[in-house]
């Protein structure tokens, strides 16, 4: 069985993905892999508060439980997915990434990550 680091390593080998991090719901990094200069520890805190805010929004607007969120910026994309009740997968991709491919790779990795968490 792969470990979390191997699975995140597979994700960052996808074209355009430069960072993949699994964080606990309180924002502490469980494991992170980055091919660039991204401080994965810092990613943890902002991802947890970001997804927490998105969940509050979903609750207020009665759209059900959050499963995935995607934020598009001028220079890249962040995809955040809830990993069960206790963790979050966050992937950072640059503009060269194909969004469909990023989302497919994220979706493919989720059950494997849940298995090893």
């Amino acid at each position: 069985m792969d470990n979390i680091r191997d699975l995140l390593g597979d994700l960052v080998r996808t074209e355009g993905i430069n960072t993949a991090v699994v964080v606990s719901r309180d924002g502490f990094v469980i494991e992170g892999v980055s091919t660039g200069n991204v401080d994965t520890e810092a990613v943890g805190a902002v991802v947890a508060s970001g997804i927490g805010a998105a969940e509050v929004m979903g609750r207020e607007l009665m759209t059900g439980e959050m499963t995935q969120g995607m934020l598009e910026y001028k220079n890249g994309v962040i995809v955040m997915s809830t990993l069960g009740m206790d963790a979050i997968l966050a992937v950072v991709a640059d503009l060269s990434a194909k969004l469909g491919s990023v989302r497919y790779q994220v979706k493919k990795s989720m059950p494997k990550l849940l298995d090893v968490l």
Binding site: S24, G27, S49, G52
Partner: peptide
Amino acid sequence: IGQSGAPSTKGTLIR
């Protein structure tokens, strides 16, 4: 707590 939920708040307080 209201804006980002209890788990994230706990993490913020610890940080």
